[in-house]
Design a protein around this nucleic acid. Structure first.
Lengths: 152, 152
DNA sequence: TTATGTCATGTGATGTTGTAACGTCTGGCG
DNA sequence: CGCCAGACGTTACAACATCACATGACATAA
């Protein structure tokens, strides 16, 4: 297994790392984006755009529409600040923005919490298999549904 | 790579294999189920429940509600006659029902067509990684988005 | 200072995907 | 026949996602 060093950020440190990554990508770190990232980062479970819209609305005392949230989530996904969990139609903050990986998500069918694994050997094997089949610009989606240790 | 023999069924042969598999699972092979399977099997791309509902409605000359289609698709997925493609919110017929696998789907972002790979070594590594993390009853979801050879 | 461009966000409508709740039909069986 | 169970129908609704266009905020050029 490839040895690989991350900072697993949390809290203010994570927000700061996100800001840095976004600015490095040539995008602005606005209040709205900061609020959405902050809300997203509080979730243990993948959060839907509507969940986020509700919480950000509360926080701001003003309705924030889901489509505004989607716009920003799309930006976050494109710049690797967040990930979309396809099997949950929902999003997770990336705990190490700026660090490019194919993540493997484990999502508990019972409690909904998600953890993630980085296993570059495994993911590069998946990439290689897809490329052997003639695919290019591949973007692996590797998720595992199941029952987590706590719900066992 | 594990050598492994399938019949890759098609057409009537596939429908027959599906019928056999469903009956073996203790379920009935009804007209509605046959129609839905037939329609699903004509698709190259993952088909949404609504796509299927439309086509089955035409075929029968009578509206079939998405609701009914979902029920049957869920049954098909449970009995391995079909697979859900999470990243497309859609379904594919399993071309070798009765044969249990963790499939890897390759879906072209451009033309939407899906192909599938069986690589038991790879999928069992994914399972193993999830189990090391304390997960049980795991169900891997391994899909790769990208650009297929034809669209290259 | 006004005009103009650009980017972020707001707003309302609409489209797509997925479920819940409950009713009806049919076939098997006492 | 009367009853039950499983398959399917029907209505309504919930959850997820996008489109089209308007507005606001800020920067720079005229």
């Amino acid at each position: 297994m490839a040895a690989h060093h991350h900072h697993e950020h949390a809290g203010a440190s994570l927000a700061h790392a996100a800001e840095t990554a976004l600015v490095d990508a040539g995008e602005q770190w606005t209040d709205m984006r900061a609020d959405i990232f902050a809300v997203l980062a509080t979730f243990e479970k993948p959060a839907s755009a509507y969940d986020i819209a509700d919480l950000v609305s509360q926080k701001r005392g003003k309705r924030v529409a889901p489509n505004s949230v989607y716009r920003i989530l799309d930006l976050f996904v494109a710049t690797n600040l967040a990930r979309r969990v396809e099997s949950a139609n929902a999003y997770l903050a990336n705990s190490h923005p700026g660090c490019l990986h194919d993540c493997i998500f484990l999502i508990c069918d019972n409690c909904g919490t998600a953890t993630h694994i980085d296993d570059d050997t495994l993911t590069s094997n998946v990439r290689a298999a897809a490329e052997r089949a003639g695919f290019a610009e591949v973007r692996p989606v590797i998720e595992v549904r199941g029952k987590c240790a706590a719900c066992g």
